[in-house]
Structures are given as C-alpha cells and as structure tokens.
Design a protein around this nucleic acid. Structure first.
Length: 757
DNA sequence: TTGAGGCTTTCAACA
DNA sequence: AAAGCCTCAA
C-alpha cells in the first residue's frame, strides 16, 4: 500500500475511487500526473485489473509517452499493456481494428493540413475559383471548424457558419472536399474522431467488443476535448461507467481546435452520482510565482474561481526585463542562464525558454550557440514536414493506397521525370471523364497522343516497388524497402547529382529517416507499411522523454508545447501586445481570455523562478514594430514584480543585409560555416538527443584512427552505429559507419563521434 | 511541353 | 524553407 504514501488526502481519494464516474479538478502543479499514474498502478496492483482493461488518453504524444513511462516505473513491464494514447492515435487503432464494421478499409491514408490544402486547391482550380484570393488554408480551417462542431456530427445543416465574405459556394467546395477524401481513401484529423463516433454508434458488435476490452477509462486534459472526443469517451464508458476525467478550466488553450469547455463544466450532469475531487494544493511553484499567475488569470470572466494553496515557500518575485530589441532579449536570457549556472547549482536542463510562436526561436538559437549553451527545440520545424521526408512518405502513402491522388501528384514528377502540368492535367481529365482513379489511367496507359516516357518509367517504378512491398515484413524489412524507394525512384540519384550543400543535407535527412524506421521496426517487428504510415502521420513532433532526460540541454519551445511540463527556471519571452497576446487575438474577448489562460499555463510551469521578457522594438516581416508591454504584465501588481533592464549593443540588420525576416535562410548566419551550424541546430529538432554546440574534434596527430573496425559508436544525428571501415591517415582518416541498414562515410576529424561500450 | 533560374510572397498554437 | 509566378531556352 505504499503507493499512497506520498499523496495528500484528496490525491489518495482520487486514486482509490476506481468505480464509477470521477471528475478531478486539478489545478496547475497539483500532482495531476502523479494521481493518474498512481491510479493506474493501484488498479493493476491492488484491484487485480488487467493492464489491457485500462484505457487512458491524453492530449499529446509526448504526454502519453511520459504517462506510460511513469506507469511502467511503478508497476514494471505490465504497464506496457495499458492502452495509453492520444485521442487521435486511439481513434486510428479503433478504426484499423473495427473499421470494417462500417465499411472502412484499414489502409486509409491520413491527410495532414498540407494535404488538406492540396485537395482544396485542386477543387478550387476545377471550380475556376482563384486560389490566390481565397487561401486554401482559410478554407481548410473553416472546414475543420465546422467538422468539430456538435451539429455536424448530429447531421445538422451548418451552412449558416459560412462567413458571408466567401464570394463563392463554400458548401460546394466542402462537399467536393469530403467526396475527394472519400475517393482518395483518406481521412483528415477530424475524420479520425468523427468516423470513430460513427463506428461506435452504428456497430453494436464493435462497441460491445471494445467495452469488453476496456473497463476503466481515464481522460486527461478533459477541458481540451472537443465534441467528438467527448462522445468517444462517453460511448466507450457507457457500460462500465468507470470513467475518470481530469482537467482544469484555467488551462484550456485549444479552443481553436474545437475544444469545448462545456465538456468539463457539464460532467456532473452527464454522469449521475459523479464524484468530484478538487486538487488545489500546488507543489510545484513558489508563492511568488503562483500569486503572479493568479493575478493574471483572475482577469478572465469565464472561469470557475478556485483556490490555489501554495505548498512551497514564498520564493522570489517574478522578474520582468524589458530589452531594447529581440537580440537584447535573447542576450538577457543567455546571460541570466550563465550567471545562474554560476551562482546556483543549476544545470542546463533546469532552464526553459517559452515563446508564443515558433518563429521567435531563431534568435535564441543564435545567441545560445554563440554563448556555447547547449539547447534543444521542441516542436518547431517538424522533421516530417521537410520536403524530402514528405516526398518519401508520399511514396509510401501512395504505395499503400493507390487511391491517394494527393500523394500521387506529389511524387509523379519528383524527381523530375518530364511529367509537367500538361501531362498531369491530361491524367486528371481522363480519370474524371472515365470515372476511374488517376493511377488507373497511368497504370493502364490510357493516355493517347504524345506521352512523356517518364510516365511509363513512373509506372514501372511503382509496379516494381509494389511487388517488393508484398514481402514485408517476412522477407523484407521496412527500412530496406524505404531505402529501395529512395533508390528506385531516382530520388537519391537526383540529389546526388545536384551535389550542393542543400541536397547533401537532404540526403542526410533521408538517411536519418531510414534509420528511424530501422529503430521503429525493432520495436514493431510485425508492422506493415500501412501501420507505419498511420503511426507517423500522427507523430509529428517526435519527442522522446528518455532522450530528454539523457541530455542536459536548455529547452526552447512554444507555450502550447510546454503544457504539462515544469522547469526550475522559466523565461516567458515576447511579452508584448500583439506578440503575446497574439495580434490575431486582441480583437475578440474570447480569444483574449484564451491567451490569458495560455499565459497562466506559461507562468505556472516555473518551479523556482520566472523571468518575463519583452522588447521595445521587434522586427516583423513588415519592418520594425514598436511594441507595448503585454497587458498581462500590467495585470501583475507592481509589488509582485521586479523590473530589470537590458540594453543590447547588437544592431538590427536592415532588410537589405543578409537576413530574411523569416529567419530561416542560411544567410542569417554570417560565418562561412553558417550552414553547418544551421544543420547542427536542426539536429536538435530531429534527434532530440543532439547538443547544439559542435564538439571539439579529436585532433589526432598520429597516423591512426582512435576507432577500431566493429566498434560501436554514437553519432549525434544518426544514433548508434558500427564502424565498418577505416581509411586514410592523419587528418584524413575516413570512417565508414553503418547505422541500421544505411552506411555513411565521415571524416573522423570533423565528426563528433562518441564511443559506446 | 517542360524545366531551370530568378524573383516574390508567405507569417499562430497542434494532432 | 517552400511554393508560386514569370521568362526563356531547348
């Protein structure tokens, strides 16, 4: 029973209340995750519940992994069988397993927002609507918004949600979009949830199978669930009634994704005799931090007032630094970290830098690098969003689902095969007139007239790869197959021929991708390509908690990404009007309240110290903006906040200088090795393990290598590998190292390799 | 008809 | 960084 040892009375009660509906209102820092994991452990260890009878969902992949790890650290390997996922991945699991009950095939493709926009763009073109005037992304988000609504699921007419400034027939576009997804055997993120609801409603067999399988339900971040998620939980738990939801209305920050706060507010009405437990003791932050957080959040009108009891001492005041510009801000952050590391016993992993938008991260990266501070970026430009990775994934998507026209047109001329717009239009036109899909037109060679040879080549490539694919996983490994895609498609060859810094970087990324598949197949030896594709479609921001703790890095991320995490020292940056609160939110009271909740989430991540920073001027793509401090700062009473000042001598480059306002281009690095530095920083996004500083190369003056053939090594980017060949002497030692099934050649002198024993 | 090169535009958070 | 548009050569 020592599971309960370190819990307070309310926490204990929440852990022990296993039967029947339970709502846990858990304020920030109140030990919510602890309660959930201990509750799961209690079910398994003390109540003899089978791990696979437990269904737990949370909001992000990161949180789900973290939860699973924590459960396993209490109950051991048995915890691995607990079903812990995000709502979306749970939906994919359910649809793959039970979808046939409502006529769904299991090889459906998942479309992300980019894919959605592609579909919409094609529709707009076919309807002769100018897609430059009406952005596909605007339409996509409107469609998502509508599909998230309660009325949509209940089959109501939602055309009144269409804004009247749409000078075209939105509903027609919407219908064609739905039709297009259906024809392509594809689902968007909304569909995953919606179809799951349909399944649960229409198939009693499937529902009762699931209710037999899962008897205890736990829903984390309940305040951020949307209507379909609410229904999924409701149907699944309708038999056992053992549903425990956890949430905090003050931390609801996803209404833009359809989250409906009513779900948590109405829990008592939805579930009779629901037990409600409030966790209001905060164990995380010192009182100075909590008082400031409270001062901000109490300006919201739409909230339940609640107590937060500071368990820890008074601590330090919140500090506010107004820098002259964003360089000054980043300098302040870096200098503060450096001096805190000196003065107090803090290390890199104790610091986190939060910002409202990903674009703000670049200057922090620059300064951290300059100061030699190792950092990692969570989120940001997603590895899977890179063109080369999306291309290879598109091959996989198309190979597993020939109806997927979005992927087909992405790859048909990638690499260039002489299949331009004219030919592609012919294919589309013929497919439409014959009522067949586009691949059939190509595969059956139905086009008449002048046909580029490349189209035939493409057909051959696909046919041959499809034949190969049949041997997975028995005769062929998934990773080998993907390697084969990159070879047979000519993708690798065309990058090789280009032989620029950029194309070489792309090849590295592709190899890294293959290596990650190698790792994936170690974990999932029976996985089919279909399964793999569906898994990674949901896993956009790979975040590996194990890796996180291994590395001693400063963490950079958006506030949204910070939800659920805690750090001893937090920097909440860009505290300016129109930055945070974001400029798109300042005109709506509801949006502003959500920004304020976001601010509350940001402040309450801090355990010991929090620094708010803002700038007087900030560059935007439009030029230089003069900024006012965020209203959230003025909401904190003066006696709770210490003011600092920082001037930066760093001059802001003019537009004409080598600097683009996006802050992406390699031009933003002034040194000749800028590109490599950039690559190094990308490692952090990709691998999570990498450290930003390039380690000093082993300056080996004697003629032999410090490595031996067959030795196991760790590369910051490619992970663990094995030395297979050593060539050259002195400064010219070349090492060939195999990672999974790929091999890479490195100059020993320039490569930060770590020996593994 | 295609593709390369040059120029411009894009600009919120996430599954 | 990536995509769209334009022009021009093949």
């Amino acid at each position: 029973m020592d599971l309960l040892k370190n819990l307070n009375n309310n926490q204990k009660e929440a852990v022990l209340h296993t039967e029947g509906p339970l709502l846990i209102l858990a304020g920030a820092g109140s030990g919510k995750t602890r309660v959930i994991t201990h509750r799961i452990a209690h079910l398994i260890n003390d109540k003899n519940v089978k791990p696979y009878n437990i269904f737990a969902v949370t909001f992000t992949n990161k949180a789900a992994e973290e939860m699973k790890n924590r459960v396993m650290s209490i109950v051991g390997p048995a915890g691995n069988s607990v079903f812990i996922k995000t709502f979306h991945s749970a939906a994919v699991y359910i649809l793959r397993r039970f979808g046939e009950h409502i006529g769904l095939s299991s090889n459906f493709t998942i479309y992300d927002s980019k894919d959605q926009e592609d579909v919409i763009k094609r529709i707009l073109i076919s309807m002769k609507i100018d897609h430059k005037k009406i952005k596909p992304s605007t339409i996509a988000s409107k469609i998502s918004e509508i599909k998230d609504k309660e009325g949509y699921l209940e089959g109501m007419d939602l055309s009144h949600f269409v804004p009247d400034y749409f000078a075209f027939d939105f509903m027609e576009v919407f219908e064609k979009y739905e039709e297009g997804l259906k024809n392509n055997n594809a689902m968007d993120f909304n569909d995953l949830l919606i179809k799951t609801v349909h399944l649960l409603r229409r198939s009693e067999t499937a529902l009762s199978d699931m209710q037999y399988m899962w008897r205890y339900f736990m829903i984390d971040e309940y305040q951020d669930t949307n209507y379909s998620q609410y229904l999924i939980a409701k149907y699944l738990a309708s038999h056992s009634k053992n549903i425990c939801v956890v949430g905090d209305d003050d931390q609801s920050i996803y209404s833009w994704r359809g989250a409906d706060i009513r779900n948590i507010l109405n829990f008592e009405k939805d579930y009779e005799r629901a037990r409600i437990i409030t966790l209001e003791e905060n164990y995380r932050s010192t009182k100075g931090i909590l008082d400031a957080a409270h001062a901000v959040i109490q300006n919201n009108s739409q909230r339940k007032n609640k107590n937060i009891i500071a368990f820890r001492g008074d601590g330090e005041h919140v500090k506010w630094c107004q820098a002259n510009n964003e360089y000054g801000e980043a300098d302040f952050v870096a200098n503060t970290i450096l001096s805190l590391k000196n003065r107090e016993n803090l290390s890199n992993r104790d610091f986190a830098v939060f910002y409202r938008t990903n674009a703000q991260s670049r200057i922090f990266e620059d300064v951290m690098r300059r100061e030699g501070l190792p950092y990692r970026i969570i989120g940001g430009q997603k590895f899977y969003d890179r063109k080369e990775i999306k291309d290879i994934i598109a091959y996989l998507k198309f190979l597993t689902n020939n109806s997927d026209t979005v992927s087909l047109f992405r790859i048909v001329n990638t690499p260039v095969r002489g299949i331009g717009n004219a030919t592609q239009d012919k294919v589309t036109e013929l497919a439409r007139s014959m009522g067949i899909n586009e691949w059939k037109v190509i595969d059956d060679e139905l086009i008449t007239g002048r046909i580029p040879k490349g189209l035939y080549d493409f057909k051959q490539i696909i046919n041959s790869l499809q034949k190969e694919m049949k041997n997975i996983p028995a005769g062929l490994k998934l990773s080998e197959f993907v390697k084969s895609i990159t070879d047979k498609s000519g993708y690798r060859k065309s990058l090789n021929e280009d032989n620029s810094l950029e194309s070489n970087a792309r090849i590295d990324n592709i190899d890294e991708f293959i290596n990650s598949i190698y790792e994936y197949e170690q974990m999932n030896p029976d996985a089919t390509p279909e399964q793999f594709i569906q898994d990674i479609s949901l896993y956009t921001s790979e975040q590996n908690p194990e890796e996180e703790h291994k590395d001693n890095c400063i963490t950079l991320m958006t506030i949204h990404n910070a939800k659920g995490l805690e750090f001893p020292v937090v920097f909440l940056t860009g505290m300016e009007e129109n930055t945070f609160p974001h400029k798109l939110c300042v005109d709506s009271e509801d949006a502003l309240e959500e920004e304020r909740r976001l601010c509350y989430v940001g402040i309450t991540r801090a355990m010991d110290q929090i620094y708010l920073t803002s700038t007087e001027i900030r560059r935007s793509f439009a030029g230089i903006d003069y900024k006012q401090p965020s209203r959230f700062i003025s909401e904190i009473p003066a006696e709770l906040i210490d003011v600092k000042h920082q001037q930066s001598t760093h001059h802001i480059p003019e537009r004409s200088e080598s600097y683009n306002s996006f802050g992406y281009g390699k031009s933003s690095f002034s040194t000749g090795t800028g590109y490599n530095l950039k690559r190094a920083s990308e490692l952090n996004v990709n691998k999570k393990s990498a450290v930003s500083e390039s380690r000093p190369s082993q300056s080996q003056t004697d003629s032999s290598s410090t490595f031996e053939v067959n030795e196991r090594v760790m590369h910051p980017k490619f992970g663990t590998g094995r030395v297979v060949k050593i060539e050259g002497t002195g400064d010219n030692v070349k090492l060939t190292i195999s990672f999974g099934i790929t091999k890479k050649v490195f100059m020993e002198k320039y490569t930060p390799l770590e020996k593994l024993n």
